[in-house]
Amino acid sequence: MISALQHPNLVRLYGCCVEGSPLLLVYEYMENNSLAHVLFSEKEGQLTLDWPTRHKICVGIAKGLAFLHEESPLKVGHIDIKTTNILLDKDMNPKISDFGLAKLDEKENTHISTRVAGTIGYMAPEYALWFS
């Protein structure tokens, strides 16, 4: 289903392998790794982000999310947006990846879930206010 969604700010899924272990997803090659790698890596020769590039990345992420939420034929909530799930191509264009926790917005399903979701160790600050 995710491979059918195409947008400049969503990573393209080319295929998968579901036989045996480990299970594999085949994405397009992203030359500059993840946003987390660029921001937090301490390796020599690390990329540095100037403010125009940071702005471009933020706007690209917002465009990708707007597409998922409003413009695509399938309305998708990503649920796990974080720097490791933002990949950067050779021109530093951001692409949203890892739809493992994504939810479809089904109009006929009116139940609202209040369950906490996301990667352990990463949580939106408002959850800490509600569940502490």
Rank of each mutant, 00 (worst) to 15 (best):
M1F: 12
I2N: 12
A4W: 10
A4R: 15
L5W: 00
Q6L: 12
N9W: 03
R12E: 14
Y14W: 15
G15N: 09
G15I: 03
E19N: 10
S21G: 09
S21H: 13
P22E: 08
V26G: 02
V26K: 03
N33L: 09
S34D: 03
S34N: 00
S34P: 01
H37E: 10
V38R: 01
V38Q: 00
L39K: 05
E44V: 12
G45H: 06
G45N: 09
Q46C: 14
Q46G: 14
D50R: 08
D50L: 10
T53N: 08
T53A: 11
K56A: 12
V59S: 07
K63M: 14
K63Q: 15
G64C: 00
G64S: 06
A66H: 15
A66E: 15
H69S: 02
P73M: 12
P73A: 13
G77V: 13
I79A: 08
K82Y: 00
T83D: 10
T84C: 09
T84N: 13
N85W: 04
N85D: 03
I86A: 05
I86Q: 01
L87Q: 06
L88S: 02
L88V: 06
L88N: 00
D89L: 03
D89W: 02
K90D: 11
N93M: 12
P94C: 01
I96P: 06
I96L: 10
S97N: 05
S97K: 04
D98P: 04
F99D: 01
F99H: 04
F99S: 02
F99N: 00
G100L: 05
G100W: 02
A102R: 01
L104G: 01
L104S: 04
E106D: 15
E108H: 10
E108K: 11
T110Q: 12
H111K: 10
T114L: 14
T114N: 13
V116Y: 04
A117F: 09
G118A: 06
I120M: 14
Y122H: 14
Y122K: 12
A124Q: 09
A124T: 08
A128G: 15
W130N: 11
F131P: 06
S132E: 12
